[in-house]
């Protein structure tokens, strides 16, 4: 990828398109009632985290990979120190 950047002088945009589509379509399939395990896990994980922490949505990175045998869900959340909701309420 770095080599590509070097000869191109700009960032490849296709991987961004791919990631945006994977997240969006998993969500839309959920709305259509086509339940998708990866999307279910994603939304429940985020809901669980949000119960305890105020998260800035820009600080969440989600990646989904779908393969014939194995799929992966990567949820990367940046939690600032002191963001715990119940502690904040006490303080």
């Amino acid at each position: 990828m770095n080599f590509l950047k070097l000869i191109n002088g700009r960032k490849a945009t296709a991987p961004i398109a791919r990631e945006r589509l994977q997240i969006l379509l998993a969500h839309e399939r959920g709305l259509r009632g086509q339940s998708d395990l990866l999307e279910l896990l994603r939304s429940e994980i985020l809901a669980a985290v949000q119960r305890h922490v105020d998260i800035d949505t820009d600080k969440i990175v989600i990646r989904m990979e779908r393969g014939p045998q194995v799929s992966t869900l990567e949820v990367d959340i940046e939690v600032p120190n002191g963001a715990h909701k119940s502690l904040a309420a006490v303080g």
């Binding site: 590509l4 191109n8 945009t13 296709a14 991987p15 791919r18 589509l21 379509l25 393969g67």
Partner: peptide, 18 residues
């Protein structure tokens, strides 16, 4: 364009649409 990463690749599209 696909090989330069400017366009979704065939594999990307097939993986997304299954």
């Amino acid at each position: 364009r696909a090989s330069r990463g400017e366009m979704l690749s065939i594999d990307d599209i097939l993986e997304i649409l299954a």
